[in-house]
Amino acid sequence: MWIDRVIELKPRERLVAIKNVSLAEEHLHDHFAADVERGLGAAPVMPGSLMLEGMAQTGGVLVGHAENFAYNVVLAKINRAEISKDATAGDTLRYTAVIERMDAIGATVKGTIHRLRHASVHAAKSSGAAVTDEGWEQIGSVEMMFSHLDNNMGGGGQAGRDYPARNFVFGESFKTLLKSSGY
């Protein structure tokens, strides 16, 4: 899972989730590890691709929830993605997904990524400086499309492709996430 908790859910419209970036995540130790030969120190930065994954999970849960998880919802296309700043251990990311259009075939979702750099906010508050928007800063925007896979297999000359009857996209981890978030 690349989101920790759902903090807002307006069914069929909008879902907001947060992700705490932690040094306990092993990938941060390799991305990027120190390079002794070149004299470079370690730079633990969350890969942009994983931010996209978190954003896609946020959007996917929103689209899946709309039909009570009756369909397998898959990320089908990222039309546009822009990430302007890094996230590192100790930061919190906030993913906001908004459904722009949804029908039986799929949905388009607009996503925005905000970052809360606790260290900077703490430093600013300690020095008496003003903190705008409680310290949240937008660092990315993503346009995505999701497909209701169940309604798309068999069409367009793809007849005969089978897939499991159970919902293989929304497993226990997604249900646990929503439940533990109070939804």
Binding site: A76, D103, I105, G106, T108, S147
Partner: peptide
């Protein structure tokens, strides 16, 4: 395949009409 859905959505936005499933591309 997913691009066809994208195209349908975008045509709706740009021209301001609604396209039914199967109306533009065969189903």
């Amino acid at each position: 395949s997913i691009d066809f859905l994208d195209i349908v959505f975008k045509l709706e936005q740009v021209f301001g009409f609604k396209i039914q499933q199967g109306e533009l591309f065969p189903e």
